[in-house]
Amino acid sequence: MAEVPPVIDVRGLTKTFGRRTVVKGVDMQIARGEIFGFLGPNGSGKTTFIRMLCGLLKPDGGEGTCLGFNVRTESDKIKPRVGYMAQRFSLYEDLTVRENLDFMARAYGLPGRKAAVAETIERFRLSSYAGQLAGSLSGGWKQRMALAACILHQPELLLLDEPTAGVDPSARRDFWDEVHELAAGGITALISTHYMDEAERCHRLAYIAYGDLLARGTGPELIAASGLCTYAVSGPDLAELAATLKHAPGVDQVAAFGVTLHVSGRDCPALEAALEKNAAGRWRVTRIETSLEEVFIDLMRHPGKAA
């Protein structure tokens, strides 16, 4: 893949609203066929960054290309090749599902429009809603329709801003299967999400916090780079134990998962000592693999110390 130029290749992308810099010199390279997950807390600049890629916002600084076209000057060439799904539902609520798809198909000058729309409706199982006004769909079905609308014209690059927010698990699985299928066919996808299970389904990830890109790499790379150790603790009176552990030296995170506590920290010996002191005897302590969730929470709490 090294010889193929990256689909997205931007450097130092910056956006300022008024006096607040919302995206601060972000670099990003995404290869063809890659599914790239984009994570970060609310208000960290994910939407703003994605909008700059598809020409919806003009960058205040930085350079780069998207599908080989300059993101500053050639957005007219980028737009037809990109499927952008906005975070907020932005299709027409007073049009039916079919009319919305039909509008998008025309807007992109899709040949064989009628057949393509019918096929997409079928594929996304929207048939029973095709004649319904988009505004009267449930949140999850709206998302599905929006996704259908942005894949309809067979774009080379998908920019999906929280595409599965409010979508039920089985539809989310369908969605990710779909994305993997498209990626296998050579389509690239940049997907922002807050769901960890989705982050795990991406080839590579980037984590942005308050405008700064803090970490990037594959899931295992990020976990390794974080240097976190994690233990699962089970037994009685977990709430009490959790309260004690939270303040123990070496413990950075304590989170309850049903009947177990996940305890993690950057300083492994210190963490082990804390567990030995507070949880030995009554509780069962086992070392487990650190998950992406712990990594991201750690990044959110200690920005600027990561890979």
Partner: peptide, 14 residues
Amino acid sequence: ERGTMENLLATPIR
């Protein structure tokens, strides 16, 4: 106001 501008601007429509 309805937010549909975002989608309209993202399409190639001039």
